[in-house]
């Protein structure tokens, strides 16, 4: 990759990161930037289902609640679900992938078979099977999205470990009497992290999409708690009349996921020298 291309990648990464930071800032300081409480209803006929206006930037919903406020508070849910779910996936994927790649042998075979079996489940159906028994709540949704999303990461980390464990510095550490635990987490893992970052960032986008789909269908975050997905549910009920209920939450999801993906892809090109000029050959 020449310098010009690298500069472009940096610009993409910067744009993606900035949007994400703005979103997080809005979610954290939700109380300061919204004029209404997200759950403040107003059932007067002239307050319900109002199109965007100066008073209600993004209009009001069927219970007269301010859509902008609900979107900003909903950002808290959607952003944190994506974040927490991916951290869970990363921890499981990294630990299992590292053990599998480092030890090899029957441990490796066992873990990789488990990965293959989990991959046979269409992820959404696996999530639904667990969700059906646990009942929908924001915590369950986070955890379930997390524990169903680690397989790709485990494979990735395993592949890294397979090649890294043969390196001289690993031999040296072993000769010095370092424990397996220390070799795995202190010596090899730091060198295997850049693909993990990339796929974690890309995974956040995926997790946000799943959460919004589940909440949209009433199986995720439960009303009255706002999430982008469940605002869209009322958008579907008023699909003919209230376009603003449908348009804005979807756009918010699209922009957030797009930013994560742009950041992830740009970082992949910047961090991983082996993928030099990936997609630009």
């Amino acid at each position: 990759m020449n310098k010009k291309k690298r500069d472009w990648r940096k610009r993409y990464a910067f744009v993606g990161l900035s949007v994400i930071i703005v979103m997080f800032a809005a979610a954290i300081f939700a109380g300061f930037i919204t004029a209404y409480s997200p759950n403040e209803t107003n059932l007067a006929p002239e307050a319900k289902l109002q199109p965007p206006s100066r008073e209600h930037l993004l209009g009001t919903d069927d219970l007269g609640r301010d859509v902008f406020s609900r979107m900003v508070y909903g950002a808290r849910i959607s952003l944190s679900v994506g974040f927490v779910a991916v951290i869970i996936s990363v921890v499981i994927g990294v630990v299992l992938g590292a053990i599998s790649g480092y030890y090899g042998g029957w441990v490796d075979i066992l873990i990789m078979r488990v990965v293959e079996i989990v991959m046979c489940f269409p992820r959404i159906f696996l999530i639904l099977m667990f969700l059906a028994f646990l009942g929908p709540s924001i915590i369950t949704v986070m955890v379930i999205i997390g524990v169903t999303g680690w397989t790709g990461l485990a494979r990735l980390v395993r592949a890294e470990f397979l090649s890294l464990k043969e390196r001289d510095y690993v031999q040296a550490a072993r000769a010095l009497g370092a424990s397996d635990f220390r070799i795995i987490f202190r010596h090899i893992l730091p060198n295997a992290l850049s693909p993990v970052y990339v796929s974690a960032i890309l995974g956040v986008g995926g997790a946000i999409l799943i959460e919004s789909a589940l909440s949209f269908l009433g199986l995720g975050v439960q009303i009255p708690m706002a999430s982008w997905g469940n605002i869209l549910t009322s958008g579907m009920h008023y699909i003919e009349s209230a376009w603003w209920l449908m348009l804005f939450p979807g756009l918010a999801i699209l922009i957030t996921v797009l930013s994560y993906n742009i950041l992830g892809e740009a970082l992949r090109d910047l961090l991983d020298p082996r993928l030099k000029g990936y997609g630009q050959k």
Partner: peptide, 9 residues
Amino acid sequence: ATPTFWLAL
């Protein structure tokens, strides 16, 4: 990045 259920709507 498109939520496909939104596209459906």
